[in-house]
Structure formats: structure tokens, C-alpha cells
Design a binder for these strands. Sequence first.
RNA 1: GGUGGGAUAGUCAAGUGGCCAACGACGGCAGACUGUAAAUCUGCUCCCUAUGGGUUCAGAGGUUCGACUCCUCUUCCCACCA
Length: 402
Amino acid sequence: MIEEALKEINRGCAEIIDNERVEKLLKAYYDEGQTYAVKAGFDPTAPDLHLGHTVLLQKLATFQKYGGRVQFLIGSFTAMIGDPTGKSATRKVLTKDEIVKNIESYTTQAFKILDKEKTDIVYNNEWLDALGAAGMLELASNLTVARMLERDDFSKRYASNTPIAVSEFMYPLLQGYDSVYLKSDIEIGGTDQKFNLLMGRQLQKAYGIKKQQAVLMMPILEGLDGVQKMSKSLGNYIGVSDEPNDMFGKVLSISDDLMWRYYELLSTKSLDEIAMLRSGVEDGTLHPKKVKEELALEITARFHNEDAAQAAKAEFEKVHAKSQIPTDIEAFEIPSEDGSLWIAKALVDCKLEPSTSQARRDIKQGGVKINQEKISDMQLQLTPGEYLLQVGKRKFAKLKVS
RNA sequence: GGUGGGAUAGUCAAGUGGCCAACGACGGCAGACUGUAAAUCUGCUCCCUAUGGGUUCAGAGGUUCGACUCCUCUUCCCACCA
């Protein structure tokens, strides 16, 4: 039993520090039914979760299956400082209002994966507000500047004369202090958080907590482009609240290589099953598209439901494989001027094109279809009636010219 | 505080008085090919009912027939010195 749990917990992890501690916690759970606290911190900066975040959440859910209680920590206080991000730039500081607004949508999305009964939502401003200047200084005395500069992005920025705000130095300390206050047994985070996660261990020791937290790091999920990390600002993400059709389509749009990465980090299939799929593809008995579809189905079903996933699959087949028109198309009604409507203008008004200039170009290149017929006349006038407009392969609109 | 250098389209980056709506790269869009892709090849990539017109090269003025290119001031960055 413990072996199975450990295997699941280890899956996909980039690095585990103090695996022994994890084993002991599991043993205590199986022998004496004793639960333990697994902490993960979340910045309420982005109100929308994407699959990159769910890698972490799924790992938390795994712990919940094996006796862990999740401390879902909202960085309500630290978000106001700004985290030193990997981008080597000072992050914009959030106001209290923005944070409050983000938290609600954040948690509802998280509970699509987490077990609500085994989750405690905590806000670090509860204890950090009370820390005060004296507490802050005491906290800061635990760390030297030299050690702080060991942190990769700090040292790089320092070396390249990129400014580092002193407040940014405080961030790892505060995050570490969260672990002290919460007496966390395990903390989970991304590999980019290694320094901060280890700070939790160091501070727990400094504040006299006997057992320091184990640290479990998850790799950063690549975005749809397969190169940069998945992030909203880069636009290469799959959001957990994306529509089923979008979600399915986005998963299917990733490259074959990236698919295996997603399988490892996002699928609930066992590692053995995945290995079988992989060898099947390699020896040609399995079509990569089929395998990718399965992944897309699984993910879509997780955030919506099985029926929606199957429907999305059917829809995708219809639109892309068979070049048929999708089921749901946004409809527009635009009045004509003097009994006619210029096609380029119509495309812009139906939000298929950003400008009439772009519309003209696409028409010229044969990228525009009306009622499934390619058109080439950029001066085309639409007379009153109903039309099906299409730009490229996947942009559709129904238009009624009145 | 001093002295130099810089700010160009989504990003990076050429251009240093007219040939500039501005080379190139990446990204993006469209076409071909496919398994939806990816890779590859081709075209496009400020706006405007357009073989033409309008607004751009940090901001504000100025010189000039004419400025992204020259001058002045402002803002912000960077380098070296203190």
C-alpha cells in the first residue's frame, strides 16, 4: 500500500528533498491513521488557472488520497510585495482589492481538482500582518545577503546590474515563515521555487520546529508551443475554464513530442500504461493522433464531463478532419447600406478580421469563404440575406444582412 | 553628481536629410502538404472601399522645399567615472 502511494507521489516530480520524511508520514497514516499537512502557495495574481497550475494541484490531490490535508495558501500578503520572477524583472505589485477579487475565482477553479473536505484555505496576511517590524527584522536576521545572492535569478540580475528591490529579498523569507506558522509537513512547488521552498526548511529549524518539511518540486509545464512555460501572458495556455471544444482542440494542437510530457504530468493513467502507448506509437501499431485524442478526452472530461468531452471530439472531427462547419457559430445581424454590404466590412463586424486591410489580404489569398465557396473579389457586395462566413480553417460566423 | 550612448511597428533589430510605411529575424495570419498539428515550401503582416489617401520611428518644439535621420528642451533607460 505504502509502496503504491509513494510511487504515485514520486511520479513526474523534478526533485524531492527528504523523501524519508514523506515515507514516515505515509507510514504514520497507514499505521495510525494520522494525517499530515501539505502546503502549497498560490499567488492570486492571475485569476484564471491553466493546466500548468493543475500539475501542482493534481499532486496535492494525490496526497489527499493518501492521508494528506492540504494547506491551500493564498499569498494575499506576499502578492502585495511582488515575487522575484524568473523573468528577471520587478513584478508589479497588486492592490488589496485586486487580490480579493482574484481569490474567489481562483479557489472555485482549484476545487475542480482538489477535495474540498481535505483542504484548508489559508491567507498569509493573517499572520504576516501581525508580524510587525520587530518580527520582520528577527526573521530577516536568519539570512545573509551572500546567501540570498546565491539564488540564481538574484545573482544574475545583480551581475547584470538589473535592479533588485530590497522588498524582493523579503519574499523568500516570508514564504518560508508561512511554513513556520503553519507547521507544514510537506511543501509542494515548482522547480523555480526551490530556493523559497528550502527557505521554509531553514526557517522551521531556526524557529525550533523539530521536523522540517519535506520539499517536493514539480517541473514547469511547457505551453502549447512546447518551448516556453505555460502562461497566460504568453497566450500559450489551456485554461481550466476553457470551453470543451477549445480545450479539446488545444490539446490536440500540441506537437507529438510535447504530448508525452503532458501525459506524464497531466494524465491519471499509470506510468506503465503510458509506456505501452509510447511503444505502440514507436512501432507503428498505434497512431499518434489516436493517442493524443485520448489525452484530450481525458483532460476535457476532467474539467467538464465525459459527455462534453465526447461531443468536443465529434465536433473536432467534423470541423477539421471532414472540413465541415461547426455546430455553434456566432450569429450576427448587420443592416445593409443601400441594399448592400461590403464583404471586408462584414468580416470586420463579425469579428473574423481585425481590419478591412487584413480582410482584403485574406480575400486576395483565398482565405475567405462564403457559404463554403472560396471568393476572390475583394469588392464583393453582400445583398440582404443569410450567409455563412469563414476565414481560414477555423473562424466562422453566421451573418444576416438586413 | 559628472561624462558619453541609446529610445524605431507584437518582440528583437537595420536605417543616419529625399529611393522609407521603413531591410532582416522571430512571432502572427493565409495558402499548399498532412494526422488537427509539427516540419517544409509560398504569400502577407499600420489604418482607410485603395494602382490612391491618411497617421507613424519616446514626447514637445525648431531648421529645411523635404526629417526616423540635423538642432533645442523634456521623460525614461544604459555604460563609464565619482
